[in-house]
Design a protein around this nucleic acid. Structure first.
Length: 419
DNA sequence: TCTGGGGTCCTAGGACCC
DNA sequence: TCTGGGGTCCTAGGACCC
């Protein structure tokens, strides 16, 4: 693949997105330190970030750092709506838009230059339109590769535009801290710091083979390729989800079979109906059990066929989790249960659908598969007409899964909708 | 007195096959 | 008379991202 010596990849990233929307919706919040919360800081305004408040921080700590901080309730449907509108602005400039989350996307504008001007001019036009038409600040990075464009947009924040010319890349990268590299978090940063590596420029002195010894093969060559500026990834417009999952925080509770059964009844309902909506099924089911002190274990099973039946997923998840907590881990308190379905296939193998348990006889063509399909179809049909809450599965209808607003769950589900 | 929910990708070891 | 090498798939755990 011959390198194209032209910076035509844009990375556009909305600034402090959730918090900025809150300030947009409620003018009394503008210019003030606010967070979307309250239990956990989902997003912080720039005024709050100045106090050292970051996303993911516990609410009590944020209040300690900034006693006057105001917490806003999340308006999740508004986030989705405004995020969609911004993406539509991007699409006015090029069809080559790869949305990677609710508030950021890559654009390849190589084919748009003759219509709209240079990539830098397109970046400026995008920023202007998002500001005037929607009322939000979006930062834009322009470079030759996706990786570099993403770094540039980080440097551009807040509310800026940074263009990295192909022959100035080293000069741009060298002084930057390594944690600006996508995929370098606290653990990798600590490993590299122990070797005296703090900036991206420091990496240039280290052979890729040595990086791979410290970080593993993939991470090492990824960082090495950044140094060598050979990032071949193209902007992809049709990315599909490769797994579908759901989780529920439980506080602290004894891991009783009935708690596990009812929680997975609820979670499997969410996962399975999303799979069926997308016309997909999955062969691997993975369960995660989190204990206190954030320690967690996972258990998984891979089946010969894909499944998407609510009761099958609920049954398998329950079996896996009960087995996982009844060994040496028995009797401990748990704080979270999660289930995810991966190894996705396009066609749900209805005629091969399984009975309920791992230990059961689940040869293809069982009459039970047909029965499960009929149950799901009925539930899906009623919900399509009367709404999600009109009907449910018995195990899913009990108890305390309401601590997190469903709107937030639905928002997360729409980040990267499977098609 | 360590918090929410939804994801992606990588690694190491083992089973199994040729 | 148990030894070589390569590949694929699966499981469990971990790092990281939004």
């Amino acid at each position: 693949m011959a390198p194209v010596r032209r910076a035509t990849i844009l990375h556009a990233d909305l600034d402090a997105f959730y918090a900025s929307v809150e300030q947009l919706l409620d003018p009394s919040l503008r210019g003030k330190p606010i967070a979307v919360g309250p239990g956990v800081v989902l997003a912080a305004s720039y005024e709050a970030k100045a106090f050292g408040i970051t996303a993911g921080m516990p609410g009590w700590r944020a209040r300690k750092l900034c006693p006057t901080i105001r917490f806003a309730d999340g308006h999740f449907r508004e986030y989705q709506r405004l995020g969609d509108e911004v993406i539509e602005v991007f699409r006015d400039f090029t069809p080559l838009v790869e949305r990677i989350s609710i508030d950021e996307a890559f654009l390849d504008v190589a084919g748009a230059i003759h219509l709209f001007g240079s990539p830098a001019e397109i970046g400026r036009a995008i920023r202007r339109r998002v500001r005037t038409e929607i009322g939000l600040a979006v930062s834009v990075g322009v470079a030759q590769t996706k990786h570099l464009a993403k770094i540039a947009s980080q440097v551009a924040k807040p509310d800026g535009l940074v263009v990295v010319h192909p022959d100035r890349e080293r000069e741009f990268l060298n002084p930057l801290p390594i944690e600006l590299i996508w995929g370098v978090g606290p653990a990798t940063r600590a490993l590299l710091a122990a070797k005296g590596i703090h900036t991206i420029g420091d990496i240039a002195d280290v052979p890729t083979s040595a990086l791979q010894l410290v970080l593993g093969q993939a991470a090492g060559s990824k960082i090495g390729s950044l140094a060598a500026n050979s990032d071949p990834r193209r902007v992809e417009t049709d990315r599909r989800a490769s797994s579908v999952g759901a989780q529920s925080a439980l506080g602290r509770q004894q891991a009783t079979p009935s708690l596990i059964r009812s929680t997975f009844g609820y979670l499997a309902d969410r996962v399975a109906s999303r799979l069926r909506d997308a016309g997909r099924a999955g062969r691997t089911i993975t369960v995660r059990v989190r204990f206190t002190e954030l320690r967690s274990i996972t258990r998984s099973a891979t089946l010969p066929v894909g499944i998407s039946s609510t009761l099958t997923i609920a049954g398998l998840a329950t079996d896996l989790a009960i087995a996982a907590v009844s060994g040496p881990a028995g009797g401990r308190e748990i704080t979270l249960l999660a289930v995810s379905v991966s190894n996705l296939t396009d066609e749900p193998a209805w005629q091969l659908e399984l009975p309920l348990g791992l230990g059961d006889d689940w040869r293809p063509g069982s009459p039970r598969g047909a029965a499960l399909r009929a149950v799901d179809r009925s539930v899906d049909a009623v919900r399509a007409r009367f709404g999600r809450d009109a009907v449910g599965y018995l195990t899913a209808m009990s108890s305390a899964h309401e601590r997190v607003p469903d709107a937030f769950r639905e928002l997360a589900e729409h980040h990267d909708p499977p098609r």
